[in-house]
């Protein structure tokens, strides 16, 4: 009995050690910020110290196995950001590595986000928010998204929102729109003051953007 307990315990310890080591092994921290205390350092890829607040695990796992381009112009701190430099593709990982990395990344959180309503938007409200997305706030100038006909439209300096509904957590989208500085000290996106109703509707609109809706 004692031997079995020792074997199981050792196995768990080894597994935990291997899990913790994969982030170092893959050198994720050389491009991504993984710790909140690294605020002074400049990283060349998106911050991941709040990955557990931001991403949906299913999408994250898939991304790690088959990376897709989210930021066609690169990350905002890249020296060639404004000139479309040749971007090196993100590394891809095996199923097992992707599972382990996803588990680790989903544990990285910096805040407890307020719950948001997941009530779907009516067709009319969706059209209204889309209008605001393009005309009132001008989001389309920097973000690719889907128009009402399901076509990809928009600028490329901001992250693509074409698949935002599968990629992001609604609570994070609302948190970002409300107070982006919690997540990024200085982004390149204008700040907006949205009333709670608009913020909720905007979040729900962004969560409707999914790549399976591309026509």
């Amino acid at each position: 009995m004692k031997t079995w307990i020792t074997i199981i315990f050792s196995g768990l310890l080894l597994s935990a050690h291997a899990s913790a080591g994969i982030v170092e092994e893959k050198d994720c921290g050389s491009c991504h910020r993984l710790h909140p205390e690294d605020a002074e350092k400049v990283f060349t890829a998106p911050d991941l110290h709040y990955a557990g607040n931001k991403f949906q695990p299913k999408w994250l796992k898939q991304f790690l196995k088959n990376p897709e381009v989210i930021r066609p112009a690169g990350f905002i701190t890249n020296s060639g950001f404004s000139q479309i430099a040749n971007l090196s593709p993100h590394s891809s990982y095996t199923e097992q590595e992707a599972n382990t990395l996803t588990d680790i990344l989903m544990d990285l959180k910096i805040s407890t986000l307020s719950p948001v309503t997941s009530e779907p938007l009516s067709k009319g409200l969706r059209a209204k928010i889309k209008y605001q997305f393009e005309r009132t706030f001008g989001c389309i100038s920097c973000h690719q998204s889907l128009n009402l006909a399901g076509k990809v439209r928009g600028g490329i300096s901001g992250p693509s929102l074409v698949n935002a509904g599968n990629r992001l957590q609604a609570e994070w989208v609302a948190g970002w729109l409300n107070d982006p500085e919690v997540y990024m000290v200085k982004g390149r996106m204008p700040r907006y003051k949205m009333d709670p109703t608009t913020l909720s509707q905007f979040t729900r609109f962004i969560m409707t953007l999914k790549k399976e809706n591309i026509k």
Partner: peptide, 23 residues
């Protein structure tokens, strides 16, 4: 200007930023 405006207006202000052709 370089941080915000160049995204659309270009690094030399010629209206040729990375978003320009998508607008």
């Amino acid at each position: 200007y370089q941080w915000y405006c160049t995204q659309c207006h270009g690094i030399k202000g010629k209206g040729d930023g990375i978003n320009a052709k998508f607008l």
